[in-house]
Design a protein around this nucleic acid. Sequence first.
DNA 1: ATTATTTATCGTAATATTGCAATATAAAAA
DNA 2: TTTTTATATTGCAATATTACGATAAATAAT
Lengths: 110, 110
Amino acid sequence: MGATKTEHFTDKQNEIATIAKALGHPARVAIIEYLLKVDACICGDIVNELPLAQPTVSQHLKELKSAGLIKGEIEGNAICYCIDEKNIYKILNYFMSVSNKLNKKKKNCC
Amino acid sequence: MGATKTEHFTDKQNEIATIAKALGHPARVAIIEYLLKVDACICGDIVNELPLAQPTVSQHLKELKSAGLIKGEIEGNAICYCIDEKNIYKILNYFMSVSNKLNKKKKNCC
DNA sequence: ATTATTTATCGTAATATTGCAATATAAAAA
DNA sequence: TTTTTATATTGCAATATTACGATAAATAAT
């Protein structure tokens, strides 16, 4: 017990949950925000932007990467991280479709 | 150690993370999906829709509620849950602004 | 070659989440 | 009132996440 029952849900549900989960920590929201702000791939100094130790930041970057929200390329002895747009648009589209469904709802009960 | 350092991040960052985290489990994505599909407040039978025991579903509902994604009203001996639109739009707006910032970016490095 | 810089990984402790059986609560139906 | 029905809470075990010091790995600078 204790492990998420992934196999009982649809691929789409798991996919959305994975992306949402990756954004379910303020440090990771802050990382995305920073990558957007600098308007360029940045090589390093994400660590300096965050109130967390370097190994912790590295771990958060790894999670964002494995969820497909950022990508990184080796650039000398640094690594160039930037936003991976595809999955950002995937979750944006998800919320847009949720919003559309909400607009079509007739009953406003609660 | 081990506890999220909430206090080091902005209110906005924590707010987005909280909403995203609530959607960071396929069961909770499935619940939202179901509430959208039935096009009405439903009273009960969410449990029958999910491959999880009743206490587990109840816990997931509690989390969605505390994140402000659903709301529930007592209706006889049942409870009427439905989507709380406000926070859905809040996270939709967040992803729209992320998308806008992405569109304004000139460099497509990685 | 040695040293500095940058990022990743390991190990581990603290904390949080997931899931469910058992039980509680509270209204509805009999 | 007793029983049924619907949902919540408790308690607990399994698992996952968060955080960081120590260390590794790999390139850059000296």
